[in-house]
Amino acid sequence: MAVALALLGAFVLVEASQLKMTSLGGGPGPGVFPVALGVMLLGIGARLAPAALRERTEFGHLRRVAVLIGALAAYAALLDRLGFVITTSATIVFLLVAFNPRRRPWLAALGLAGSVGSYALFSSFLKVQLPPDPWFLWP
């Protein structure tokens, strides 16, 4: 983590050096603040790096984490094409079934009802703009 941020700091320094350092009024330009931040990231990151390389952490159910991230990535990729109701229902039903070993048909129905219900609540009642479905099945 610290190593990554130190590298980010170095990258920021390179990128920010292309920005102007002074403005017309004699004050600092758009590059000053990023350069200062790059120095901070690089300095503190490098200071923490030796300890960070020795840090170890324990991981639990990584499969469930991967399932959750994967489901949301698929959600973001398909939302535009399939619209809110279909993509959301599919994602929520999938997660409910994946995370609960029992009573799956009942949970699938609950997920479907929850997704459609929340669309009705947020889009129709609260007027929150959500992506429409491509076939306009939902008014």
Partner: peptide
């Protein structure tokens, strides 16, 4: 396990 997907929603 049931709450989590709805919080995701």
């Amino acid at each position: 396990g049931i709450l989590l997907p709805f919080i995701v929603l």
